[in-house]
Design a protein around this nucleic acid. Structure first.
Length: 695
DNA sequence: ACGCTGGGTAAGGGTAATCAAATATC
DNA sequence: TGATATTTGATTACCCTTACCCAGCG
């Protein structure tokens, strides 16, 4: 506990650890802490620089939570021998000032590095050490590496940029500076002392990486866009005049040095453009193999000096050579096969199986290994990106969902299918399943600021989320359709999911008391599906009773089960109907075809086909009832299909916690929400492939 | 003189977005 | 068969790391 006294330009805060906080005339808060006392809480090897973090907490000691202002500062010894260290708390001035001005009692804790883990998302000793190191030399890097430090490389994630921007913002605020460019481009090194170090906090990147990024971000000569023919001409002249003095050339062109440097790399007097001739390709292959000491037919994706290759090829730039080789020629020469839809699905599944928390963790080399239709790891990565880009909100969706939330949280991957074609794939944040009181019935809830986990774009789209929460006894797959998709069912939509059995039914508005709710109904006592046996059959008689049927379309419904396959089948083929149709599809493998033959044999085939005499969606859902909801009901693999009673809307409904965010995000109105429960104990269930068609 | 700090530069491997040509589909 | 949509190849603006350099300072 500490008391605060306020002075004209200096604030001193005494703490239990006798830490002294002062504010200088520039508004910086400076912490003074006797070394011996710091040692009490810092048992670190004294050879390690003291990286401490201050935590301000209110008197009621809410400990460390979101409501508690936490601050990050670097504690740097004033000198090796002095018994104190000094900290500049630029990032937290506002919080500190508030506390101080209000005269509240503030507690300052000095946490050891280990403790930082508890309060900082990225906080760890490694993070501190890395983000405060410039890495000037190879030795610096090796030294940190040898100490077990690791740091992030590659493209900056949105989260990292957010942290950086936030750090900069707080730095500016603390010093009353309006524009960061003042610091970056106008201040002297001395004036901006500690700027980069301060804003690097919380980032697991070396200081020079932060420095680079900040320079790029705030350099208005960067991001200027495409070079005009005039600029190119001028660039050529300047290049002759100034050689590799990129800074000078850039200044003359109003471009950043790196921009003009990069542009010059693309301009080679002898460069051809357009289609490669056979002769060029031949030469490229020869040069690559020669320079890498490999043989024709070998797969070469790394360790190639493209500048050297381009030099020898003569008619192409290094970029052109690299692109041609990695995206075509090497694959062609080594007997690669064509990329198919199955490959695409396979890619999605393989990535899902990796269960990596960050896309950057994906080892594309490993993933591409032995995959004949993959042209190169780099190519595969871009393929993945292409798939992702097809999702409208892919930029807003973080890669993985964390799985360590309570049982009700389900991590999901989403696959969007459009008109029978696999369109997109993404992994979404957690969903929350809430028991409704009706056994086997859950509510699906998305996190507060998360949009509907469904990609409902201009064309009929079904999004399917495949749950992968190991802790959840019943995994869930959800997909949805906008009402338009049902009403304008001129397109076929097929959803494939990894569950042993799927049954879809629709529920009219009247059946649902709240239009803002989405209901997932799961019945666990229906017929059990033996996933260990190849084609498993879902019995037709397990299908919903009159109530269900009244909500189902006239069309046949079927569920397809394939426990052998770990892949999604490629395409679909569904004819359209009015309403909702559940139907088995099969298209790729012989096995599938065989099952198709058995589709009407409920007990032996992989399919369950049912003819339901029910109104069509069009009949049930009129425009005035746009908020109607359609529920897809999917039985647990080990369970049974729910009876009509179970699915009774009245029993299932009063569920108000769900869906508002979903529906609000999608004004189209009603959606079909379906769930597939995956068996908790069966790995096989993951290998099950279901095809459900909705029309 | 030397090591450290805090930058700074050039080179080049790489990514992601866009454009255009080729091909498929309606 | 022609229009349109989709796929694929090529291009390019921009990003990031590596390796090296340098001035100022204690």
């Amino acid at each position: 506990m500490s008391t605060v006294e306020e002075e004209s330009d200096t604030v001193t805060v005494e703490t239990v650890n006798s830490v002294t906080l002062t504010q200088d005339t520039e508004g910086n808060l400076i912490l003074h802490c006797p070394q011996n006392e710091a040692d009490e809480v810092d048992s670190e090897d004294s050879t390690e620089p003291p990286h401490k973090r201050l935590c301000l907490s209110s008197e009621d000691d809410q400990s460390i939570d979101d409501s508690t202002p936490c601050i990050s500062v670097v504690a740097v010894p004033i000198s090796e021998n002095e018994q104190s260290f000094e900290v500049t708390m630029t990032a937290t001035t506002e919080v500190a000032d508030d506390e101080i001005n209000e005269g509240t009692v503030t507690q300052i804790q000095i946490l050891q590095n280990e403790q930082l883990d508890e309060i900082s998302p990225l906080g760890s000793e490694e993070v501190s050490a890395v983000s405060q190191a410039w890495f000037t030399t190879k030795e610096d890097k090796d030294s940190l590496t040898n100490k077990g430090h690791k740091w992030k490389q590659g493209m900056w994630s949105k989260e990292e940029i957010d942290i950086l921007m936030s750090n900069i913002e707080r730095y500016l605020k603390a010093r009353g500076i309006k524009d960061a460019t003042e610091i970056i481009f106008e201040m002297s090194k001395d004036e901006r002392k500690d700027f980069y170090r301060t804003i690097a906090w919380g980032l697991n990147r070396p200081l020079f990486a932060v420095y680079r990024r900040v320079l790029r971000m705030y350099d208005d000569r960067n991001h200027v866009g495409k070079y005009t023919p005039e600029e190119i001409e001028k660039l050529k002249e300047l290049r002759i005049k100034h050689g590799n003095d990129w800074a000078t050339i850039g200044a003359a062109l109003g471009r950043s040095a790196s921009s003009v440097k990069d542009r010059c790399r693309l301009m080679k007097d002898t460069c051809n453009t357009g289609k490669w001739t056979e002769e060029e390709e031949k030469r490229l292959a020869e040069v690559v193999h020669e320079l890498t000491s490999t043989e024709p037919g070998d797969i070469v994706t790394q360790g190639v000096s493209w500048a050297a290759v381009a030099e020898r090829v003569g008619t192409r730039s290094e970029k052109q050579c690299r692109s041609k080789w990695l995206n075509y020629l090497n694959w062609k020469q080594s007997g690669g096969t064509e990329w198919t839809k199955e490959d695409e699905i396979n890619l999605i599944l393989r990535i899902a199986e990796l269960e990596v928390s960050d896309e950057n963790e994906i080892n594309w080399d490993l993933l591409a290994e032995g995959w004949s239709s993959v042209r190169s790891p780099q190519w595969l990565r871009s393929k993945w990106w292409t798939i992702k880009r097809q999702i409208a909100n892919h930029k807003d969706v973080s890669f993985p969902a964390s799985t360590d939330s309570p049982a009700a949280a389900v991590d999901s991957e989403t696959i969007t299918l459009n008109s029978g074609t696999l369109q997109t794939f993404e992994i979404l944040p957690s969903f929350h399943l809430q028991p409704t009181g009706t056994p086997g019935t859950y509510l699906l809830q998305t996190s507060s600021n998360q949009g509907l986990p469904l990609t409902l774009t201009t064309s009929p789209t079904v999004t399917l989320t495949a749950a992968a929460a190991p802790a959840s006894p019943e995994q869930i797959i959800v997909h949805a359709l906008s009402p338009e998709h049902l009403l304008n069912a001129s397109d076929n939509v097929t959803v494939q999911c990894h569950t042993p059995s799927v049954i879809i039914r629709t529920v009219a508005t009247d059946d649902i008391s709240s239009v803002t709710q989405a209901e997932l109904t799961v019945d666990s006592h229906i017929q059990s599906t033996d996933l260990t046996d190849p084609p498993t059959t879902l019995e037709a008689n397990t299908f919903p009773d009159e109530i269900h049927q009244s909500k189902l379309s006239d069309e046949e419904q079927s569920a397809y089960i394939d426990d052998e396959s770990t892949k999604f089948s490629g395409r679909n083929s569904t004819e359209l109907i009015d309403g909702v149709m559940v139907r088995t599809e099969e298209e790729i493998s012989d096995t599938d075809l065989k099952r198709e033959e058995d589709s009407h044999s409920n007990l032996t085939g992989a399919y369950v086909t049912e003819d339901l005499d029910s109104p069509t969606i069009e009949e049930q859902v009129d425009q005035s009832a746009i908020d109607d909801e359609t529920v897809l009901i999917v039985p647990s693999p080990h369970g049974f299909i729910q009876t009509s009673d179970d699915i009774d809307n009245e029993s299932a409904l009063p569920l108000t916690t769900l869906a508002d965010p979903i529906l609000q995000h999608h004004e189209e109105g009603s959606h079909i929400i379906g769930s597939c429960l995956d068996s908790p104990d069966s790995e096989d269930s993951k290998d099950v492939e279901d095809l459900v068609s909705c029309h």
